[in-house]
Design a binder for these strands. Sequence first.
DNA 1: GGTAAGTTGAACAGTGCTGTTCGAGTTGCA
DNA 2: TGCAACTCGAACAGCACTGTTCAACTTACC
Lengths: 195, 195
Amino acid sequence: MSHSGTSQARRADARQNVEKILDAAITSLSRNADASVSEIAQAAGVGRVTLYGHFPTRDALIEAALVRVISEGEAVLAKLDLSGDPRRALRVLIESSWLLIARASAVLAAAQTALPPGRVHQLHAEPAQRVDELIRRGQAEGAFRDDHPVTWLTSVLHHLLKGAAVDVANGLLAQADAPRLIAETVLAAYTRADT
Amino acid sequence: MSHSGTSQARRADARQNVEKILDAAITSLSRNADASVSEIAQAAGVGRVTLYGHFPTRDALIEAALVRVISEGEAVLAKLDLSGDPRRALRVLIESSWLLIARASAVLAAAQTALPPGRVHQLHAEPAQRVDELIRRGQAEGAFRDDHPVTWLTSVLHHLLKGAAVDVANGLLAQADAPRLIAETVLAAYTRADT
DNA sequence: GGTAAGTTGAACAGTGCTGTTCGAGTTGCA
DNA sequence: TGCAACTCGAACAGCACTGTTCAACTTACC
C-alpha cells in the first residue's frame, strides 16, 4: 500500500486501480478544475481511503495526472511526421492531437493553481518545445509570418485549442467541426493579412 | 445597511464603500477566480462584516461585480464608431477595449462557476451581440471570411483576447505589444489563408 | 488453501470558508 | 450638537474538505 517507491511487485488490482484513479482524475478535473478527492475516488469506482493509499496528497494526485496526460501527449506527438511543409505539419499536429491537447490543457489549468509555480511549466517544457521548433522552422522557411514573436504564435495555437475545447464543452461547437476550424484559423492567423 | 433596495438615500461613505468593494472584487477575482470574501474585503480596505452589509452573499457580490464590469464594457463599446470598414472597426474595437475586456472575461470566468448556468450568458448577451453584428456585417461585405460560422469567429476573438490577458499576467507578453498582436492576429484569422 | 497485499466504510481531528450576531465605536449629515 | 447610519472586530455555528487511523473484509497470487 505504500505509495510509489520503485513501483515493483504490486498486485495486479492495485496497479489497475492506480490507472482507474488517474483516468478519473483527468476527466473529473477536466469537468471541474477543483474536484474533490471524494469526487475523483467515486468517479474511479474506488474508496477514498484507497486513493490516499496510492497518492499521499491531493496535490500529488494532480501532479501525477498532469504527468500522465502530458506523457500521453508526448507519445502522440512523437509518432507524428512533422517534417516537410510546415503548414501541412501544423495541420497534422492539430487534427491528430487536438482532443488530447484539450484534455491536457484542462488538467494543466487545474494543476496551475494546485502546484508550486514553475512546476507546471517545467513538466510541460519538453512537448512544448517540439511545437516551438515546428513554428520556428516554419518562420525560417517563410511558411509562417515572422513579424510576430514565436512565443505569441505558440500562444495563439495554445489558446485556440483550449478555447475550442471550451466551446465544445459548452455546446457552442460541434466535436466534428472543431479540428478543421482550428487548423484553418491557426494557419490563417500565421499568415500575414493583406490589410 | 440593508443591501440594495431601491438604492436611495444611502450615506456617502456607504455608497463609496460599495464602489471600493466592487473594484476590489473585480481585481481580486481577476487574480484568483475563487478569492475568498475576506480577501476581497481586505483588498477593498473594508471589514468583512461591512461587505456582508452590502451584499447578502458571495454569489450576489460576484454577480454585482459581473454586472458592473459588463456595463463598463458596454459603455466603452457604445462610444466607439464601429461603422465603415469592418476591419478598421475591429481594430478600433480591440485596441480601445482590450484591457477592459480582459478584466471582464476574468470576472466572467469566476462567475461561470459561482452563478447558476445561463445567468452569465444572459447578462453577457447584450454587449456580445454588438460584436456579433460587426462580424456579421464584415462577412456580408466580404471583409471577413464567410466559410466559418459567426459563432466561431466571435469565439476566436474572445479566446485570443482572454489568452493575451493570461499571457500578460504570466509575463509572456508585454502590455504594450498586446493590442497590436491581437488585432493583427484576429484580422489574419478572419482572412482565408491561401493554402 | 493460506497469507500477505489490498480494499473499504466509519469515524476522527484539523482547517478554512461562509454567513450571522452582538456590542462598541465612528462618522455623515441635518 | 445630536442621532441615525454606518463600520468594525470578535466570536459563533455550520459546512465541506483534507488527511489519518482502525478494524473488518475481500482478493490476488504462491
